[in-house]
Design a protein around this nucleic acid. Structure first.
Ligand code: MN
Ligand code: MN
Ligand code: MN
Ligand code: MN
Lengths: 220, 220
DNA sequence: ATATAATTTTAGACAAACCTAAAAAATTGT
DNA sequence: ACAATTTTTTAGGTTTGTCTAAAATTATAT
């Protein structure tokens, strides 16, 4: 598999991660920052290799084989992110671009040993699950703050957007994974939400609320 | 710089490391496992970029700019090798192929932090020096066993051949970097050498003797 | 010195991954 | 229903790095 093929496979995986339907050529082009015609070329090649299901004009979806390839790249990406943060002291907003390169290094022994060296982590620095060798991972029961009712309380376990801009914003506002938040109030007008934190309560915009995952704590 | 350009630059560096003359097209082709015509193409491109000095039919040599590029890749290669051996418990015969990929990862911050994480090592697992950021490294005063007179005593500090086959041979014969050897006898007939080790004395073939470096210990 | 051999370069092709422009198909609005 | 718009594909080209075969140059041997 070439680097480019791997990035396309990963892109298709992420685009179909939640809606499960087939992915549009234009959507892939946008995510990969290429032109739709380039996507068509690549999709044909991936189809030849039985990595995707493709019929002209009908969009594309990963085959089981393609899904496993995607998960093995995602496994590598996230393990490297853990390494960069835990061992090399990168901050969580810097690791994505580097992991984007490291994920393509080909060596099973390397990933096995890296996994062991890191103590078999289950999630990456952004709270995303790390699949095991066989592509198995536990999808945690996390919900976006924007989708939770007022009164909910939970631990912040992940971000929906892992752009450096968003992560730096969180750092600046002293919001980190592992923090416990309670949803105090939602403003119907603009969708902003007031949450309680260790250091008092703050109001976060709707955009922030749609990018922060909580794992609900039972309120007995 | 593309991955391929980097590998060519590194190859030219290694081929001119000791003889200092210009490097032949065929020599590069052999090392890179490509055809001479491919080398000519690439050498023209590198010449365009002022990374090498090249005149038709006259061979090629690195420019100062090219030399610095070579050393920065070698720095990355060797730092990754240290990481693989020291942190991930690879054996010294397994690391070269993986480092061959890792050396092309582009991130200055990554290499700086890796260097710090490893405690600023001066040599790689094969005894080869690690250049600093500016391409400076101390070339140690090591000599091949085959070039030393009988009676010399020194510490084994490096290998000339880092192929897995040779390194495994050394492991099997309990020869490791850091061991102290004394050259007891040289057989003129076949160039084999008898050396004393901790565990007695052994006879090594001329081929082995031309691939092991000693750093001479003053014999006061 | 000159024929022979080896080395190096050129010419022309190919695959991978991208592009632009135009054509084809699907979707949408009235 | 069907015209307009959007999406997707096709056709044809480019760049990078490779190849084979042939030509040019340099080195070697008698
Ligand atoms: Mn990538
Ligand atoms: Mn991540
Ligand atoms: Mn390499
Ligand atoms: Mn080495």
């Amino acid at each position: 598999m070439t680097l480019s093929e791997e990035d396309y496979i990963k892109s298709i995986y992420h685009l179909s991660e939640f809606n499960s339907k087939s992915v549009a050529t234009n959507a892939i082009a946008e995510q990969m920052k290429t032109k739709p015609s380039s996507v068509t070329d690549m999709v044909k090649k991936l189809s030849e290799k039985s990595l995707v299901n493709y019929k002209k004009y009908q969009g594309v979806s990963l085959s089981e084989k393609g899904r496993l390839v995607a998960l093995s790249i995602i496994r590598k990406h996230r393990l490297w992110e853990v390494f960069l943060v835990d061992k090399l002291n990168f901050s969580w907003d810097e690791v994505h671009v580097v992991a984007e390169q490291l994920e393509h290094i080909k060596s099973d022994a390397l990933i096995d040993k890296l996994d062991a060296h890191l103590g078999y982590p289950k999630v990456d620095p952004h709270g995303d699950p790390i699949p095991n060798k066989d592509g198995v991972f536990t999808k945690s029961v996390k919900k976006l703050i924007s989708e939770l009712p007022v009164g909910s309380q939970g631990v912040c376990v992940g971000v929906n957007d892992s752009s450096a801009a968003f992560l730096k914003f969180l750092d600046k506002n002293k919001i980190a994974l592992g923090d416990t938040f309670k949803i105090l109030e939602r403003e119907e007008f603009d969708g902003s939400v007031t949450i309680s934190t260790r250091s008092g309560s703050i109001n976060i915009s709707k955009q922030i609320a749609t990018n922060l995952f909580l794992e609900i704590v039972d309120e007995e």
